[in-house]
């Protein structure tokens, strides 16, 4: 009996999750302007992590850039 209750509860939970998924799928996203749409797309477009690794390798082959002009002007090694 208790087992049956658990099953019922699980089925109800699954049904609820399915309804939520359906609602999420059928609820249209609305964007007032193309810029809003592009911002949404940019936020959901992952940047490949390989870029950072490639950059690290490329930078390792290059000497460090000289300090910025304002740092040289101030004569200090810190900001």
């Amino acid at each position: 009996m208790k087992h049956q209750t658990k099953l019922d509860s699980r089925e109800a939970q699954q049904e609820q999750q399915s309804d939520t998924r359906q609602a999420q799928q059928t609820t249209p996203l609305e964007f007032a302007t193309p810029e809003e749409l592009l911002r949404h797309d940019a936020l959901h477009t992952p940047v490949p992590p390989t870029i950072a690794h490639r950059l690290q390798e490329s930078i390792a082959k290059n000497p460090s850039p000289p300090p910025p002009w304002w740092r040289r002007l101030l004569g200090g090694s810190n900001q």
């Binding site: 940047v47 490949p48 870029i51 490639r54 950059l55 490329s58 290059n62 850039p65 000289p66 910025p68």
Partner: peptide
């Protein structure tokens, strides 16, 4: 093209790294 974009992003930041001293604010 994602691959071209990846290459371009790498190249842009590498250029930026090399030219950071030229950034005048």
């Amino acid at each position: 093209d994602p691959q071209k974009a990846e290459d371009a992003t790498h190249d842009v930041f590498l250029k930026a790294f090399r030219k950071m001293d030229q950034f005048r604010g």
